[in-house]
Amino acid sequence: MNMLTRLKRRMGEIGCYTYVTVLAVFAAFPLLWLFICSVKESGDLLANPTSMIPQKFTLANYHNVMVNLGLGTNIRNSLMVSLSTTLIATVISSLAAYGIVRFFPKLGNMMSKLLIMTYMFPAIVLVIPYAVVMGKLGLTNTRLGLVLVYLSFNVPYAVWLLVGFFKTVPIGIEEAARIDGAGRLQTFVRVVLPLVAPGLVSTAIYMFINAWNEFLYALILTSSSSITTLSIKLHTMQGADVLNWGDMMAACMVVVLPSVVFFSFIQKYIAGGMTEGAVK
């Protein structure tokens, strides 16, 4: 290898590093700033808008949001709603996706096309009818109501994704299992599911994130602070009697930091969760 090629490669690598470094600053700076502002005192926050070092380090804002504003309840609500949605949606949609692939080979294609159409329904289109339906069912201001709504948005998309994953399972394996006397559901649970586990996990994570971040329906369908989700709680803080940026920064930090940690652990799975199944 001659000098020139080596130099070129070296330059290329330096270029790559520079580029991702610039991007990383762009991507991560808001989080850093969030942290800095959350530990500043409120006078400092307003007096020194560009200072990176707090005059005095304080956890008062955190104390305020967790103890006085009871953010913990809303974290729990968000977790409950998102986890139930993910769990139920995963069960329903993996059953349906497998059913479509195995038992409706001809109809299947059309079914999954119809399902993906539901993905393009803007949330805003259905919010009034949902309000009416939930009102009639008496499910407004309940976490169950929110779970149902989130299911309706997540299940069709999840089915569509999972159909792609199930298609990759060779039928021969199942037949072998069936000859061994396993029933359909048994085959499904013991043989098929483990094979699509990675796809299942990334679909589930995708749904979880959707439910965790949802705003519009939670805004319209829940009213009690003991029921509502984190997003709405943060939204309410913005309109409070006293505009306290320090509190808001601390509250955001409490929400964002666990997500960042969670995301960095599950990276492997999210990679491709959105499209992998569908193009297989």
């Binding site: 939204h235 964002v256 969670f262």
Partner: peptide, 9 residues
């Protein structure tokens, strides 16, 4: 991927 971990609010 940090930005992705931010809820919209």
């Amino acid at each position: 991927i940090i930005p992705w971990a931010f809820p919209t609010i």
